[in-house]
């Protein structure tokens, strides 16, 4: 095995990467680390504001809808679907990278297509969820008048219940903390934008594979780098899922 002989190598004497890694891939790792801090800063800021409030909407109450299920109360259902879509697309990406290691062009093409399908499916789910949240109106008591409002960056209908007050068969609430919408749309939007750019990168990789670019280069390193980005997007979702939907 090659690894057995590496102890004699002068790693820092030049001519080779001390990290045994190709430049582009190493820089992808450092980009992802910095991106982790960006997402981390957003999520921590959300946590700070949430901790500073006496009341915060219950995610099981806010995210309880499912497409074509009408007003059925299905907490966590839709977001679990989104989570599984992203996990599965991460798996197909690993399989594409694996096929690339074996110079298996057909395998790379097949798994890249599935990964792209998964990414588009996730984005479609997110589009539905946003639409549902913005256009789904709920009766809220504002300045003594019941108004029907949706969730936006400036309005939040998910406040505490006004006891004993109903409006068209729906419980009337007070307005909730306004930061809720801003953080939700801001952070899931920033993540969704990452998914979108990941899909675009994957499509470019697919086209390059179809053109035989990587076969001519003799390696599928680019698929690996795109894969790192894609897994990172999945990784961020783990924490977005945690912070917005689970706890």
């Amino acid at each position: 095995m090659a690894t057995a002989a590496t102890s004699d190598i002068k790693w820092w004497a030049g001519g080779r990467s001390p990290f045994n890694m190709e430049y582009g891939k190493l820089m992808m790792w450092y980009f992802l680390m910095s991106d982790a801090f960006t997402f981390g800063a957003f999520l921590i800021s959300y946590g700070t504001i949430r901790f500073s409030q006496n009341y915060w909407p219950d995610p099981n109450h806010v995210f309880n809808a499912f497409p074509f299920a009408g007003h059925a109360n299905l907490p966590l259902a839709f977001v679990s679907l989104m989570t599984f879509i992203l996990i599965i697309s991460s798996v197909t990406m690993v399989l594409a990278v694996h096929a690339g290691h074996h110079m298996d062009r057909k395998g790379v093409i097949k798994w890249m297509i599935w990964t792209i399908v998964g990414g588009i499916a996730f984005l479609s789910c997110q589009a539905w969820e946003w639409t549902h949240l913005i256009t789904g109106h709920h009766p809220v008591l504002i300045d003594g008048v019941v108004q029907e409002i949706g969730t936006t960056v400036s309005r939040n209908p998910w406040g505490p219940d006004v006891t004993g007050m109903m409006h068209d068969g729906m419980q009337v609430t007070k307005t909730g903390p306004v930061a809720f919408g801003g953080y939700f749309f801001g952070i899931t939007g920033f993540h969704g934008f990452h998914v979108l750019s990941g899909v675009v990168i994957n499509i470019i990789m697919l086209i390059m594979t179809l053109n035989g670019t990587f076969d001519r280069r003799g390696h599928y390193q680019m698929i690996e780098k795109a894969g790192l980005y894609w897994h990172f997007v999945d990784l961020v979702w783990v924490f977005v899922f945690l912070c917005f939907y689970l706890i």
Partner: peptide, 10 residues
């Protein structure tokens, strides 16, 4: 099989 970069030792 996939030696592609002089930077990568093994």
């Amino acid at each position: 099989s996939n030696t592609h970069s002089p930077e990568v030792t093994f």
